[in-house]
Amino acid sequence: MKPFRHINVPGVAEAVDYLNKFPGSSRLIAGGTDLLGVLKDDILPAYPELLINIKAIPGLDYLREDENGLSIGALVKLAFLARSPLVREKYKVLADAARSVGTPQLRNMATVGGNLGQETRCWYYRYPHGIGGRIQCQRKGSGPCLAVGGDNRYHVIMGGKGCFAACPSDLATALAALEGSIKTEGAGGGRIISIGEFFHPLGNALKAGEMIVELQVPPLPAGSRQHWLKYTLREPVDFAVVSVAVLTVLEAGICREARIALGAVAPGPLRALQAEQFLKGKEPIPEVLQEAAVLAVQGAKPLSKNGYKVEIARVLVLRALEASFAGHK
């Protein structure tokens, strides 16, 4: 790994300060599981001069529930989130999503903030500098997206523009089903970004000098059930090929609310609004769920090699809905 300077900061204000003092040449490090891989492969045109260690900021690893819902400090580790009885009990998709990330050691290190802020896994973007030089692309500021004419088996089937890399964050998918949001701090103060607004095709909504400090989940609809499914070739290690988080409310056998969030099919987590709307007020019989599953990916525009993701997404939606509705009994 090429050298960099490193500073420990005692608080969020100092972290933001340093980010702004070294615009473009500094990076935050918390778990480091994504960042250090990026630096070792030297994939970015600009190598950071300074790493700002936020790991030791006290009080940023909290898990709190009150009348406004659940708040998760950015430094909460994935392993902690996955194990938390509260989260497992009430925010099941979040615990399951956290547990599905990487490997146990990675989850012992990686933070929730980092999971949302991590770099994409597009293999063109990630191509190591050491083997003939990094690959330039739209996401890095110049050049075409090579996935379009290349091997795009893991890329998006919806919402790509300029870049067709899929959102790598499993937490994002779960948060989308829970209608969560991300709280940030920056030079101009903090803001709250809904999870649906956080990702865009070329990156995320964080401005220069802004950092994630908290994940927020509003109170859940009464009597709701949740289900998480992640399709990968192997259970550990892999990033999602497709993931689905659903939340359902069933009253007297009728679907009152259904939220369906799809992961790894678009630049960010994608709510299947049409399917959700279709389910509302209906009895979740097999035909209805199948129709909803088809609607969930309607309008998908797969690339040359990822049409199979459309089919998998449909099946995952169907299975997740079946499981979630079954949970109401």
């Binding site: 490193h6 420990n8 490090i29 480091g32 599981t33 250090l36 891989g37 790493l51 260690n53 790991k55 030791a56 050691q105 990675l106 012992n108 290190m109």
Partner: peptide
């Protein structure tokens, strides 16, 4: 933890 992804200074 993975010692290859842990900075000694931390």
């Amino acid at each position: 933890v993975l010692s290859c992804l842990t900075l000694t200074v931390e």
